[in-house]
């Protein structure tokens, strides 16, 4: 009847962006009046925080603040194609496209400013909302630089696309180059199993994920924490049931999801193994975050009570049955000896 603790681990790998097909995304950038910026791209936020990530990328590239970046609505009639929101591709595909577009826009502005100052363009820097030339006293606010450009008949804009060098799979042996960037990870889970009821509580998860480069570490943590809890739902309770084609879990009273009481504390460790191909070195985190959780939890349950769950979810009934099965087996062994 005791509550027993145990630990388990699992590793994972994942591919970034669309699989076994050429992926692509485009973005437009404009350095706007007042030293702000406008970005348009085909697809953005589904909750993961990409709007903020793209604003950070544009801000860093242009030398302004993220708050000064406006990202246009996602509209097939108003923005260039960026394909879809999925496949752990947003930061990689769209982030890189935005960086490239922003660099172009910046280059236009820098050219105008450099010629105004009579300095080489490669001496001109943009940072903290200002444009300045190294080794000189030349300096002006970004907003003034934009006005200068416009007075010279230039609107500083950029347009860029980012694509992958990937192939399909051979239909016979599967060989091919499905992705150009891979990520790896590992999670450890600690559980407590109530041997009276078979309930499993996951108390802690330590999650290590290579994301290439974390544009917004807190956002990466959010993806890891959320991914782990989604996986925990599948590990322990969620179960879409269907009998003769009809669901017996038609609403959220029957299809149950983890609540704030059911979730572990998550410790995220972010690894950065930069992507050598894209301009930013970023990779991704959305999907891989949830891959190792379920086996880590099942391995931890085994460690705690010796019950191996191979059919998900590990409901209290299944866990208790597996515990009893193990007890029966060991009694059987003892009797045989």
């Amino acid at each position: 009847m005791a509550r027993r603790r145990g630990r388990g681990m699992a590793a994972c790998w994942y591919g970034i962006a669309r699989t076994a097909t050429v992926d692509r995304a485009a973005a437009w950038a404009e350095i706007d009046d007042g030293g702000t910026a406008k970005i348009a791209t085909g697809v953005t936020e589904i909750g993961e925080g990409i709007l903020t990530v793209l604003a950070q990328i544009a801000a860093e590239e242009l030398g302004i603040r993220p708050q000064d970046v406006t990202i246009g609505d996602n509209d097939t009639a108003r923005a260039p194609e960026a394909a879809h929101a999925g496949a752990t591709r947003q930061t990689y595909m769209i982030g890189n496209a935005v960086a490239l577009a922003a660099r172009q826009a910046r280059a236009q502005l820098v050219d105008v400013v450099a010629s105004q100052w009579g300095v080489a363009a490669n001496l001109v820097e943009t940072a903290n909302g200002e444009v300045f030339a190294r080794k000189t006293n030349h300096r002006m606010p970004m907003g003034d630089a934009v006005s200068l450009c416009k007075s010279r008949g230039v609107v500083p804009v950029g347009a860029a696309s980012f694509g992958t060098d990937t192939t399909g799979l051979d239909p016979v042996d599967g060989s091919g180059r499905p992705w150009q960037a891979y990520v790896f990870g590992c999670q450890v889970a600690e559980v407590e199993v109530d041997t009276l009821t078979g309930e499993v509580q996951v108390l802690g998860v330590w999650a290590v994920h290579d994301v290439g480069r974390a544009v917004n570490p807190r956002g990466v943590e959010g993806q890891i924490e959320g991914g782990i809890v989604q996986a925990l739902g599948q590990a322990l309770m969620e179960d879409y049931r269907i009998e003769n084609g009809r669901t017996t879990t038609p609403g959220l009273a029957k299809y149950i999801l983890p609540t704030a009481l059911d979730v572990p504390h998550v410790t995220s460790v972010i690894l950065e193994d930069r992507d050598p191909i894209g301009p930013l070195g970023v990779k991704g985190i959305g999907e891989p975050a949830m891959v190792p959780t379920i086996p880590a939890v099942m391995n931890a349950i085994y460690d705690a009570v010796g019950a191996r769950i191979t059919a998900l979810p590990a409901t209290p009934e299944r866990v208790l049955e597996a515990i009893k099965e193990r007890e029966r087996a060991s009694r059987h062994r003892a009797a045989a000896e």
Binding site: M237, T259, L261, P316
Partner: peptide, 12 residues
Amino acid sequence: KVGHRRSLVIAT
């Protein structure tokens, strides 16, 4: 009480 989670749960 035992069910499949710890809040909003119908007792087994």
